[in-house]
Amino acid sequence: MAYSNKVLDHYNHPRNVGSLDKNDPNVGTGMVGAPECGDVMKLQVRVNPETGIIEEAKFKTFGCGSAIASSSLATEWLHGKSVDEALAIKNTDIVNELSLPPVKIHCSVLAEDAIKAAIADYKKKAGTKSDSVAAQ
């Protein structure tokens, strides 16, 4: 199967590969996977607590080219977005941007799940943080 040029570009030059300190209270971590193809995807965001803007996004994916491209693109898009804007990213946006064929749509779903999981993790941390502040 031929990959689109955009997929190849992300695959050969993945953006924002790496990791953030998952113990940082402003960092949200999303870890998702698809057992059928053996993929695992970790996506992290660092949110500015004052502005609610995502200032940094990193990923590390073990999987096929489409899974790597989907998560690489996701981190690019997350940069500078608010948490709510990030949650509005749909897998179909990724499919369209990368021209993913139907058999690779699940890779974009995985990336959307990873974004949602990372944001949920950040919100959970932010929630417990303000609770503990309020309790003091």
């Binding site: 998702v32 996977g33 698809a34 059928e36 779903v109 995985l110 799940d113 990873a114 999981a117």
Partner: peptide, 8 residues
């Protein structure tokens, strides 16, 4: 077949 991350 098509399990998603929430099941893992």
């Amino acid at each position: 077949g098509e399990q998603r991350s929430r099941d893992v």
